[in-house]
Design a binder for these strands. Structure first.
Length: 872
RNA sequence: GGACGAUUAGCUCAGCUGGUUAGAGCGCUGGCCUCACAUGCCAGAGGUCACUGGUUCAAAUCCAGUAUCGUCCACCA
């Protein structure tokens, strides 16, 4: 066996093991295995993306689950793949082209798409490599891509079936248009951003209307007021002659309940062509539509003399002209939310355009029922409410996008007989009149193919072994930001095409923020790169940090100190193993069998069993933080702090070879079990150490996940050990307080109540060793003169100080210290009392001073207690 | 405008179905290079559980209200 260094170096261990696991095929799941299936489908990252904190958290949690289930005997499949991410990818590609001084228009559609494919081949491996670096045990042999042939076939199949059922239709409606991306966006793809604007009150003949978009004045085809608004009742039904920038115009006044009489002047200008609400009002009152802003965000010919101007340029111009014409009553500053494109943050323009829609209500109803009936369990529960709310108010899904990168809509138009045909296979002539056809140029929304992911990746529409075995999948792990985009749509599509839910559980995790609670973003420059974290602290420490912070329902603030702490934990594990291994060389199993377990042996086995059941319970309920903390606490503060220290007594000082052998056996057993318990969280270090510890099997990945063994639960041993530890701590406390040198052996007298006497007397040797003391235990003992005392429950502990501590000198020292600290407190207090100090000093100085005062006060209390101890 | 969540130690947070003395990590103080680990060991200090009322034998925990912060949803021009 090669020597272990006294520090754990992740760089030496990690790359090696991942290769071994993958080469030996441990990640591969066989659909014909008799084991119980457990399946997770990965939320497919953008094929050209790279790993960020969100991915790291998401995939760490999935890997913990999948490794746990795999060890626990399940046929575990983690289905990986990537998403073509329509707009996102196309945008990046367009930027690349711009850098080369060309455009996608210059390239043409086919060349552009080919170019994206080429780039996908080059850049597509990055995120996969990074996931491997993270330790993700995906079944890479099954890796899929939303635009690969199989998945594209599934997309067509779904589209055509929906078409055949009449659920897909085409319509002219007002849509969210991104003038930068040149495509329609769904409501979900529009984000709100607070912007400062001007609220402009414009005179409309006898009326006044407030607006933030004066340029849409040109598209006005009416005015509206609330039907019950008495102020304007006389105008309803009239057509007003209004002087405006392009001369006199005529606008009818209608009454509509959508108008809020309390807002602004209570009069609304109706611009059906450029506002979703106005579009509805216009429909109700049969007002004509005037489109004055085009798809390029420039004013159209309908805008008269403003034609060709950018919409914001036009806004400025029109306000200027209105001012000179005296049409503006007043202008107020106004802060409001504008809709922006979620990809490029350009202000979205509501426009009328022809798009494809999916009738969603018939799909949504079963999806609501499935969650209500408990067929899908959403964790944390609070999210199901959000889910219901959205699903119950869902609107038809606009599924077409004016992009080139994506699944081209499988609809063909015949210009000869004006028919349209959806088809699973490409068509070249009209099935009705044999005339020539042209295919729809739009592609499908990216989320259309993602919605099929849980079954398309398993081979649908073919009836595959994979589908039979793994559908419905077990758990979906994702962030809440794509609950509507993705999760809800998978549920709808799964129920529709598989007749069953796509997954039994949905676990929704938090968002990773920076240490200040800010969302990480490139523009803020507060992004922590997961890869550099892994380089610096190791993958295991990083994964453990994420798990330990992943409390339900709360965002994660990732601070570097936290990762450092768990790096130390990995090091602790490494060194504990080093200790166990170096003391195991002369182990003799036959001797161990003859020995009776000591109190520490029984105690640590009992604690291990308890920890095991805590971890299992926590994992079952997706309480990753509880699971992580339980092992952390056990390994560091029970196994290392106490059992290892106890074991040294037997290992180094016992003359009983049987006792020594048993201790060796317990050390190895507990360590080996803990490694297995930890493996899903820290896969690399646990494999490395496990291989060096006596074990059964070829890899810890395939070893069984620990189960709590009932006979090992030993409440009696836990109680006895708790008492022992409390007594030892009490003695150490006195030693520290009385400044007794660490090496100095002292005498300690313990006076237990009769009921505990036997229990303590048995462990005198251990207490003595752990507290560096000679111990006398006697229920009849009396407190000696000049001794310090501590109370542990009913147990009294005395430590005679004569001959160990110079009482008089100590008393003087204490009194001097007390005087000094009192002065310090007064100094800080007076300083803080002065307001200018608080106001002028930097906050960290104030904090430090306050800390000093607190420390001084605490120190004072302690010293006074010590002084009292001396004067008994 | 709706809905949800948060408020616990100096900081970041656990605390599940109410039940001994409210926990952790970091930070802080004091002492230790004790033959696994100074990425460590031992000891210690530090909390009116946001506020107000209620339910209960018992409330950080349940209920109502208030305040502050945050998130999501929504066509207030």
């Amino acid at each position: 066996m090669t020597e272990l260094s006294d520090r754990y170096d992740p760089q030496e261990v990690e790359p090696h093991w991942y290769r071994v696991w993958e080469e030996r095929g441990y990640f591969h799941a066989d659909p014909e295995s008799p084991k119980k299936p457990y399946c997770i489908v990965i939320p497919p990252p953008n094929v050209t993306g790279s790993l960020h904190m969100g991915h790291a958290l998401n995939n760490t949690l999935q890997d913990i689950l999948i490794r746990w289930k795999r060890m626990d005997g399940a046929n575990a499949l983690w289905m990986p793949g990537t998403d073509h991410a329509g707009i996102a990818t196309q945008n990046v590609m367009e930027r690349q082209l711009a850098a080369e001084g060309t455009t996608k228009a210059a390239l043409g559609r086919d060349a552009f798409v080919q170019r994206v494919w080429r780039w996908k081949e080059e850049a597509g491996g990055t995120i996969i490599r990074q996931l491997k670096r993270l330790g993700a045990s995906c079944d890479w042999r099954r890796e899929r891509f939303t635009m690969d042939p199989g998945l594209s076939r599934a997309v067509r199949e779904v589209f055509v079936r929906l078409w055949e059922e009449g659920l897909i239709y085409q319509g002219d409606y007002i849509v969210n248009w991104c003038p930068r991306c040149q495509t329609v966006l769904s409501d979900l793809e529009v984000e709100r951003e607070e912007r400062d604007a001007e609220f402009i009150y414009i005179k409309y003949g006898p009326l006044t209307v407030g607006t933030v978009r004066p340029e849409t004045r040109l598209g006005d085809t009416g005015l509206a007021v609330h039907p019950k608004d008495k102020r304007y009742a006389k105008h309803v039904g009239q057509t007003l002659e209004i002087a405006s920038v392009e001369g006199t115009i005529r606008l009818p006044v209608v009454a509509d309940t959508a108008v809020d009489p309390k807002f602004g002047t209570g009069v609304v200008k109706v611009t059906p062509g450029h506002d979703a609400a106005d579009f509805e009002i216009g429909r109700r009152h049969k007002l004509p539509v005037r489109t004055v802003i085009g798809f390029d965000a420039r004013m159209t010919s309908e805008a008269g003399k403003y034609a060709g101007l950018d919409r914001f340029e036009c806004r400025k111009r029109i306000v200027e002209e209105m001012k000179t014409l005296g049409l503006i009553e007043r202008i107020e500053p106004y802060r409001h939310a504008v809709g922006v494109c979620y990809r490029c943050r350009t202000v979205v323009e509501p426009l009328i355009s022809k798009q494809w829609y999916l009738r969603i209500k018939p799909l949504a109803e079963p999806a609501i029922k499935a969650v209500r009936a408990g067929k899908i369990k959403i964790t944390p529960r609070g999210w199901s409410k959000t889910y219901y709310h959205w699903m119950e108010n869902i609107r038809d899904w606009p599924i077409s996008r004016q992009l080139w990168w994506g699944h081209r809509i499988p609809v063909w138009y015949c210009d000869a007989d004006k028919s349209a045909h959806a088809s699973r296979t490409d068509l070249d002539h009209c099935p009705r009149c044999q005339g020539p056809l042209r295919q729809e140029t739009d592609v499908l929304d990216t989320w259309f193919s993602s919605a099929l992911w849980p079954f398309s990746t398993l081979g649908w529409p073919d009836e595959t072994k994979e589908l039979r075995s793994f559908y419905p999948t077990s758990c979906l792990v994702t962030g809440f930001d794509i609950l509507f985009f993705w999760v809800a749509r998978m549920i709808m599509m799964g129920l529709k095409f598989m007749g069953d839910v796509p997954f039994r559980d949905v676990y929704i995790h938090a968002l990773v923020r920076d240490a200040e609670g800010q969302k990480m973003s490139k523009s803020k420059g507060n992004v922590i790169d997961p890869l550099s974290v892994m380089d610096k602290y190791g993958t295991d420490a990083f994964r453990f940090t994420l798990a330990a912070l992943a409390a339900q329902g709360r965002d994660i603030r990732l601070a570097e100190e936290r990762i450092e702490g768990y790096r130390n934990f990995a090091n602790k594990l490494w060194n504990a193993s080093r200790f166990v291994l170096t003391n195991f060389a002369d182990y003799d199993a036959s001797l161990a069998k003859k020995a009776a377990p000591t109190l520490p042996d029984r105690w640590i086995q009992s604690r291990l069993a308890r920890t095991t059941s805590t971890v299992r319970r926590a994992l079952t309920t997706y309480r990753f933080n509880d699971a992580a903390n339980a092992v952390y606490q056990f390994l560091w503060h029970e196994f290392c702090d106490w059992y290892l220290e106890c074991s040294k007594l037997t290992l180094y000082r016992s003359s009983d070879p049987q006792a020594k052998a048993l201790t060796q056996k317990t050390l190895v057993e507990v360590l080996e079990t803990t490694l297995r318990l930890l493996h899903p969280f820290m896969p690399f270090i646990t494999e490395e150490l496990w291989q060096r510890v006596p074990h059964k099997g070829e890899s810890i990945m395939l070893a069984p996940y620990p189960r709590p063994k009932r006979p090992q639960l030993d409440p009696e041993a836990e109680r006895a050990m708790d008492l022992l530890m409390a007594v030892v701590s009490a003695i150490r406390n006195i030693r520290a307080e009385m400044r007794i040198a660490p090496g100095q052996v002292v005498t300690v007298m313990i006076k237990p109540p009769a009921s505990l006497s036997g229990r303590l007397t048995e462990q005198i040797g251990l207490i003595a060793a752990l507290a560096k003391a000679e111990v006398i235990c006697d229920p009849e003992t009396q407190r000696p003169p000049q001794s310090a005392m501590a109370l542990v429950g009913d147990v009294e502990v005395y430590l005679p100080l004569a001959g160990i501590v110079d009482l008089e000198a100590e008393r003087q020292r204490l009194e001097k210290e007390i005087r000094k600290l009192t002065g310090e407190i007064q100094f800080v207090d007076s300083k803080l009392a002065r307001r200018e100090f608080r106001e002028k000093a930097p906050s960290e100085v104030v904090e430090r001073e306050e800390q000093r005062a607190r420390d001084a006060k605490a120190g004072l209390a302690k010293l006074e207690a010590s002084l009292r101890q001396l004067s008994n």
